[in-house]
Lab assay of single mutants.
Amino acid sequence: FDIYVVTADYLPLGAEQDAITLREGQYVEVLDAAHPLRWLVRTKPTKSSPSRQGWVSPAYLDRRL
């Protein structure tokens, strides 16, 4: 999967189903980028939180090589 970094805090609107909150600087794996406005991502697990999966706007993501 492609690795992206979150460029700004992402707080989903209440109406968005299956969306997750992301923090600036967080790394995520993009699982599904087929839709231009919503990408399915999975967060990297940390010592304090397990990995999470949900939909985010790709405008908040920047690809890492």
Rank of each mutant, 00 (worst) to 15 (best):
R23A: 08
T21K: 09
V56A: 05
R63D: 06
L37T: 11
R64M: 14
R52G: 05
V5P: 01
P45E: 12
P50S: 07
A8E: 09
V28A: 01
G25W: 02
Q17Y: 11
Y60F: 12
L37H: 13
D18Y: 08
A8C: 10
L13S: 15
E24K: 15
K44V: 15
R23D: 06
K47A: 14
D18I: 04
S57M: 05
L31F: 02
W55T: 03
T43F: 05
W55H: 03
R64S: 13
R42I: 04
T43W: 07
Q53W: 08
A8S: 11
S49T: 12
V41H: 01
A34H: 13
V41N: 00
G25F: 03
V28T: 01
T7H: 04
V56H: 01
T7R: 10
D2T: 10
Y4T: 02
Q17K: 14
L37F: 11
I3M: 09
I3T: 09
G14C: 12
L61W: 01
V56D: 00
G14W: 12
A34E: 10
Q53R: 07
Y60L: 06
T21Y: 13
P45W: 07
D18Q: 07
Y10W: 10
Y27A: 05
P12N: 08
A8K: 15
T7C: 10
L11R: 11
A34N: 13
E24Y: 12
R23V: 10
R64V: 15
D62C: 13
Q26P: 00
R64P: 15
W55K: 02
W39V: 01
A15R: 07
L22S: 00
P12S: 07
Y27W: 13
T7V: 14
R64Q: 13
L40A: 01
Y27T: 09
Q17F: 12
E16Y: 08
E29W: 15
D9L: 05
T46H: 07
F1R: 10
L11T: 14
P58I: 04
G14S: 13
A19H: 13
L22N: 01
D9G: 06
F1T: 08
R38Y: 08
L61G: 00
D2C: 13
L65P: 14
S49P: 02
Y4S: 01
L11Y: 15
A8N: 07
Y60I: 10
S51M: 10
S48F: 13
R38W: 10
T43V: 08
L37W: 10
Y10S: 03
P45I: 04
S57P: 15
D9A: 06
K47M: 13
V56T: 04
F1W: 11
I3L: 11
R42D: 01
R38Q: 06
V6C: 10
V56E: 00
A8Q: 13
V41W: 01
W39C: 03
Y60N: 07
T21Q: 12
P12C: 06
I20L: 12
A33V: 05
P58D: 01
L40I: 02
T43D: 02
L13D: 15
E29G: 02
T7I: 15
K47G: 13
I20F: 14
S49I: 10
H35M: 07
P58G: 02
A33F: 09
R23N: 08
G54H: 05
Q53P: 02
G25Y: 03
D32P: 00
S49K: 09
H35R: 06
Y10G: 03
Q53K: 08
R63M: 11
Q26N: 04
R38K: 10
S48A: 11
I20Q: 03
E29L: 10
L13H: 13
S57H: 11
D2H: 11
P50F: 05
R42N: 02
A15E: 14
E24F: 11
T43N: 02
D62N: 10
A59R: 10
S48Q: 12
V6W: 01
G14Y: 12
Q26L: 04
L31I: 12
R38T: 05
K47W: 11
A34C: 11
G25D: 02
T46L: 06
D18W: 09
V5Y: 13
L65Q: 13
P12A: 09
S48I: 10
F1Q: 08
L11F: 15
A33I: 05
V5L: 09
P58E: 02
G54L: 11
S51E: 07
Y60D: 03
H35W: 07
S51F: 06
L37Y: 11
G25E: 01
R23S: 09
S51A: 12
I20E: 03
K47C: 12
V30G: 00
P58F: 02
S57K: 05
F1V: 08
R23H: 12
V28W: 01
P58Y: 02
D9Y: 04
V6K: 00
A15S: 15
D2S: 10
T21R: 11
W55F: 08
L65F: 14
P58L: 02
L13E: 14
P12R: 06
K47L: 13
P36C: 05
Q53M: 14
L22Y: 01
H35L: 07
L40F: 09
A34R: 15
T43A: 04
A59C: 10
Q17H: 13
P50N: 06
L22Q: 01
P50C: 07
L22D: 00
S57R: 04
Y27I: 14
R64G: 10
A19P: 06
W55N: 02
G54K: 01
D62Q: 15
G54M: 09
Y4W: 13
I3Q: 06
V5F: 09
Y10C: 05
P36T: 06
V28M: 01
R38H: 06
L11W: 14
V28C: 03
E16S: 09
P36R: 06
D18F: 09
V30I: 09
V5K: 07
I3P: 03
E29K: 05
S51W: 07
L65A: 13
R42G: 02
W39F: 03
A59S: 11
Y27L: 15
A33W: 09
L40H: 04
I3A: 04
S49H: 12
I20C: 04
R64H: 14
R52T: 11
S57E: 08
G25A: 02
P45T: 07
A33N: 14
L61A: 00
Q26G: 03
R38L: 10
R52V: 15
L61N: 01
S51Y: 07
A34L: 09
A8M: 14
Y4A: 07
A59P: 02
Y27F: 13
S51C: 06
S51D: 03
E29R: 07
L65R: 09
D9W: 03
D62A: 15
L40M: 05
V5N: 02
Q53C: 11
L37P: 04
S51H: 04
I3F: 08
Y10H: 07
L37K: 09
A59W: 07
I20D: 03
A59G: 07
D9C: 05
R63C: 08
L61M: 03
Y10T: 05
G54P: 00
E29Q: 10
Q53Y: 11
V41F: 01
L22C: 02
A15V: 12
L31G: 00
